[in-house]
Computed example of a mutant assay.
Amino acid sequence: MSENFLDIPPLIKAAEAAFQHAVAPSSGFRVGAALQTQEGPLFTGCNIESPVYLGICAERVALFKALSEGYRKFLALAIVCEEGVPCPPCGTCRQLLWEFSPGLHIVLDNKFGETQIRIIEHLLPDVFERGGRKPFKNKEL
């Protein structure tokens, strides 16, 4: 799917709404994410931390919510963060996003109307592949 066919503004708006629910007492760095499924529904997530530095990223929250509801095909993930600068996913999120959707569009918004779009494969050029195989490419999940 081309980025020209992605409906980016509602995706960013959903990520901004999720951002408002972030729990970040340790880092003070709030992040919101919105994942667009191929079938249409959006799943949002925010980062959640505990005071003892345990937590999970917004991107994984959105992905896990979608996966737990049975969705397996994804088009795009929008991410907004505290600093007002583009905030790409961390390494763990990049790996998981790639495993479930190697062609996923990553929409990075700086909260000032400037948007960057990347493909997860380009953010994670040397993916970890178990035994040289792509773990979910040929399997129905």
Rank of each mutant, 00 (worst) to 15 (best):
A58M: 11
A58E: 14
E59M: 03
E59G: 05
R60M: 13
R60K: 15
V61D: 14
A62T: 10
A62G: 07
A62C: 09
F64A: 03
F64C: 02
K65H: 15
A66H: 07
L67E: 08
L67P: 03
S68T: 15
S68K: 14
E69I: 06
G70M: 11
Y71W: 10
Y71P: 02
Y71N: 14
Y71E: 12
Y71C: 12
R72G: 08
K73W: 14
F74S: 01
F74Y: 03
L75I: 08
A76T: 15
A76D: 12
A78F: 13
I79T: 12
I79W: 10
V80D: 01
V80Y: 04
C81D: 09
C81R: 02
E82P: 00
E82K: 00
E83I: 06
G84W: 00
G84I: 07
V85I: 11
P86R: 04
C87R: 00
C87N: 00
P88Y: 08
P88H: 08
P88I: 08
P89D: 15
C90I: 10
C90D: 07
G91M: 01
G91W: 00
G91H: 04
T92M: 15
T92S: 10
C93P: 00
C93F: 09
C93Y: 05
R94T: 15
R94S: 15
R94N: 13
Q95F: 13
Q95R: 00
L96H: 03
L96S: 03
L96M: 08
L97D: 12
L97K: 01
W98T: 06
E99D: 13
E99K: 02
E99M: 06
E99H: 07
F100C: 03
S101H: 05
S101K: 01
S101V: 04
P102D: 12
G103T: 15
L104H: 10
L104T: 06
L104F: 12
L104V: 10
H105A: 06
V107A: 09
